[in-house]
Design a protein around this nucleic acid. Structure first.
Lengths: 208, 208
DNA sequence: GGAAGTTAATCAAACGATTGATTAATTTTG
DNA sequence: CAAAATTAATCAATCGTTTGATTAACTTCC
């Protein structure tokens, strides 16, 4: 029996996300999406109205999941430093579990075009930055953190994570690191988590 | 007299760079480049062979300048920490003096497409990372630096700088930061330099 | 020195291919 | 049967590139 009953709508979304990640929004044609998803071209407009509609839906889905995660951490009854460690771990896990999408997000963020998308990503990011901001500020105010440049520390945390997944990876003892390889992915992820946690601990809590 | 003699070739390069930075490679048409530069469409292919030829020429020009800068620093007779501080300052100055191009570089780096361009950027980056690697390794070997995860420290330095210029900028005491505004640009640049220099000093030289 | 030859630079127009989108007809489904 | 889903065919618009012709400046040669 061939009751494959693959949801065409979902198939389009998945194919489009894959292609957008690989070749960018402009670099992906609706015909490619059609072929990759197995759906007829017209289905794209039938379900999403337009190519941009597909893009927006993908972004909305992803960002929705992004937002809810970190709120809980900030309400834990733990020290500011422990909160920070948890946030770093949470960020890293999310980014490393979908590197391609994270790349795409940054790509679209660096374009002045598509202002609605830019605003959406910007808002999602700002929200995350706000949580980090609050945690670090609390730590400074209760005296457990040094009086650092909060905004810059946030840039360091987020920038390091982004750089690790985007920047070209060097050879590690003769073998090329491939973040699509689950083993390498896990290894690098744990390395950057350990590094960042150690870094913020030293930088924020070392007394002069 | 109508000897305007504007170098069309240069005009195309400048217009294309501006447009590529603003709307991306795929998002920019040869007709736009033609209109913006005042040159006939055919001139693009006449001088550069193709649209991609223009892109490659722009990249080559920029990267060429990028490479020579940092070599000198590493040959100075100063401490590893001072070298590191100088490199951070050098990076920051270069990035902040041409933010749009730096964005474009990162955009193209996140695309698996256009492998020749990817390789070019990757090589340029790798070279810079190698210099940083050498400086930090030397510091570790002569005992002036802690035994840190060198690759991750490099990601932190480069990632922080990139994040500051790419990530959306928050409101600072009621006013929006605009890195195209020379005053804001200088301010933020000095902030991130001070932050990174302080960060690496604390992280690399603080004894446990 | 001036006619003849040669060159690079520039142009408008057109090329075939591809783009995102839409139509109208057909099939599937409830 | 009617509504929803799917299809092939087609749309106008735009894409990057190429063409053939023209201009203007410079060499070459007698």
């Amino acid at each position: 029996m061939k009751t494959e009953k693959v949801d065409k709508k979902q198939a389009i979304l998945e194919a489009a996300e894959k292609l957008f990640c690989e070749t960018g929004y402009e670099g992906t044609s609706t015909r490619q999406i059609s072929k990759e998803s197995g759906a007829n071209m017209a289905m794209i407009n039938y379900y999403f109205g337009s190519k941009e509609g597909v893009f927006i839906e993908i972004m909305n889905n992803r960002i929705a999941g992004f937002l809810s995660q970190l709120k809980i951490i900030n309400e834990d009854k733990i020290s500011s430093l422990e909160k920070l460690h948890k946030v770093i771990e949470g960020y890293a896990n999310r980014i490393f579990s979908n590197i391609a999408f994270h790349k795409m997000m940054h790509r679209e963020l660096s374009l002045t075009q598509r202002p609605d998308m830019y605003d959406k990503i910007k808002n999602a990011m700002s929200h995350n930055m706000l949580i980090l901001d609050r945690i670090i500020m609390d730590g400074i105010e209760d005296g457990s953190f040094n009086n650092v440049d909060v905004r810059m520390v946030i840039s360091t945390i987020m920038g390091t994570l982004t750089n690790v997944v985007i920047a070209p990876h060097k050879i590690s003892q003769g073998e090329i690191i491939d973040l699509n390889n689950p083993k390498d992915n896990k290894l690098i992820k744990e390395r950057v988590i350990a590094h960042l946690q150690n870094l913020v601990t030293v930088y924020l809590t070392t007394k002069k």
